[in-house]
């Protein structure tokens, strides 16, 4: 039994992604196997050096860095979406695994749920 939570929405301006992150953390809290997949505009969650003081919101980059501590097993980034948004491994937060075939990744998990 494994769950893949997919975030395909941008990091700020909508709550959908944060709610999904909350869901992932809750599954991890109860020791359920859970991973995160970022695709589409969602890969922008992974961009390094986010400075959110000016928009008075908490940094999703910093929130995400708690995922391994809470027991989220993996963070995947869709390879094609990263290319579309100019994201290279150097420009991304640590601990991300590239996903060249995200449909396959979904088929490998028992449950896949999209944010929002």
């Amino acid at each position: 039994m494994s769950t893949l939570i997919v975030i395909d929405q941008p990091p700020y301006g909508t709550w959908a992604g944060r709610e999904a992150l909350d869901m992932a953390f809750s599954l991890a809290a109860f020791d359920q196997s859970v991973s995160l997949l970022f695709m589409g505009a969602g890969v922008n969650w992974l961009r390094a050096a986010q400075q959110t003081n000016g928009i008075e919101q908490k940094s999703v980059e910093k929130n995400l860095s708690a995922a391994p501590i809470f027991g989220v097993e993996a963070m995947y980034a869709d390879t094609l979406a990263c290319a579309q948004y100019g994201l290279t491994p150097e420009g991304m937060v640590a601990g991300v695994t590239m996903s060249p075939n995200s449909a396959e990744l979904m088929h490998q998990h028992t449950h896949t749920a999209f944010a929002g």
Binding site: H107, H109, T110, H111, T112, A113
Partner: peptide, 14 residues
């Protein structure tokens, strides 16, 4: 719908 979800080995909620 519940029966369908029980028949499925994997579920994707898009």
């Amino acid at each position: 719908m519940v029966k369908l979800t029980a028949q499925a080995q994997h579920l994707i909620s898009w």
